[in-house]
Design a protein around this nucleic acid. Sequence first.
DNA 1: AAATCGAGAGACAACGTTGTCTTGCAGTAG
DNA 2: CTACTGCAAGACAACGTTGTCTCTCGATTT
Lengths: 273, 273
Amino acid sequence: MGRPTMNDVARNAGVSLKTVSRVVNGETTVDPGLAARVRAAVAALGYRPNLGASMLRRNDRRTRMIGVLLTDLAGPFSAAVHRAVEDEARARGVHVLGGSTDDDPQRAQDLVEAFARRHVDGVILTAPAVVDLPSVVIDREAGIGQGMRHLRNHGHRRIVFVEREVHAVFALPDPPTAILAGSTSVTIEVVRALRERGLRDRVALVGLGDFPTADLLEPAVTVVAQDPAATGRAAAGALFEQIDGGTQGARAISIPTTLIARGSGEIRPATGS
Amino acid sequence: MGRPTMNDVARNAGVSLKTVSRVVNGETTVDPGLAARVRAAVAALGYRPNLGASMLRRNDRRTRMIGVLLTDLAGPFSAAVHRAVEDEARARGVHVLGGSTDDDPQRAQDLVEAFARRHVDGVILTAPAVVDLPSVVIDREAGIGQGMRHLRNHGHRRIVFVEREVHAVFALPDPPTAILAGSTSVTIEVVRALRERGLRDRVALVGLGDFPTADLLEPAVTVVAQDPAATGRAAAGALFEQIDGGTQGARAISIPTTLIARGSGEIRPATGS
DNA sequence: AAATCGAGAGACAACGTTGTCTTGCAGTAG
DNA sequence: CTACTGCAAGACAACGTTGTCTCTCGATTT
């Protein structure tokens, strides 16, 4: 007595199983009268097709599910990518399985494997993993060079690229005159650390990834914006192109980045020291 | 010739289909020699079980997938909830289908329906929808009262609760002395608007939902923090309790909120006016 | 030595659906 | 009035897997 099946609907409507299938799938070769009876039975029983069983039998063998594997679905970059992918998927009647890897290659691999067992139609990832599925890799390294160049152009020679271990930077024997922060959360940690040490107007800072309050802080934070929404759209577009066969779509997406100068990244190194 | 099936593995290993099934499912009643041959064949062919077919036949009828339906998976609140749910799910070998509703009840309903067709084991939602599945509803309204009370306690009588239409607030004939912002993105918009109008030290502001730079702005922003991660964990916990039967788990989760006074919410109304 | 037992391994059906083939019947042409 | 055509609707198999039943064979018991 689980959920009603096509068979239950068929019995209720007094038609064959196959006729129900035809009506449910919108085939036109069904007598309007019978079709109406079937639809009534569907409504009466609260019948819902079982997509799992359907996919098993269908010729196209699509589950209409894709996997999205990002660093941290709670972080602003991953979340925005995920959302953009979701929108592209929705437009195609596809659902999205999400997964956070926390930059752990093993976990990424495990998730890919698990998604493959679910027969997802494809995956979008940030770290390249071994996949025998349609897939698109998002290049997160883009923009580092741009940030570095900007700081160099402003006279800096001692620049540190920071991921996570923010406080270690200030313990260095020869402290940097400029910092490039690897993610928005790191950027914010750096802002906080600089303030605590009274260095906010003395050490230059460029953050990877824009964030909504970057222009409201003092000094306003210079960032390399990555447009995660556009990235997600592009990745999803490329993935669906692969899935739908035809021209083999792009297997990698590189983020077009933009440097937004707001102040913190234009601080010059102290000339005296 | 799509992916190899159990039958292919069976042929390759020279055993029956059922024996492969037993090995794959870790049953112990298999001769070690045969089991080794099966495992070798699995590796050689790159066989992966088809979870869809498996779920169709298994007795428990679980897909080990749940749906998470939130306002906007790109927003910090939804994203953090989503991540927390993902972690709880991962611990149980369950995957998460995500969906953004943008607060559109129709879309929420459509997504619930679509997830039900996929036979998800349950759903977590912010807006109550008609569901005949295990489900947990997250109450997002909690905290509004707390914010209002705080502002009233600081002498305010003209308080506006703002969602989205930030600029309309300042067009009011009788402008408020305090603002309660409905989400972090609205809070940030209000901060920006107050600055543009030179009102940042004159109009009180309390935001619903903490954000990483709230303490770095000037004045620092008072918020009603919602601990989305704890919310997600609680919702997932309650959902799995329902799914696993036994005690009917909670059907609704209310967020325990904390007011964090940082300055912007303690501004008092101008006494003269 | 015959009867009993147990455990490993295969045969077969079934899960809910769709692809293919066949049947039945009305409508048309000769 | 018979033969043909066409199309709606049902019968049946199949998708990849697991549950249940049966069979075989060696080991144990008496």
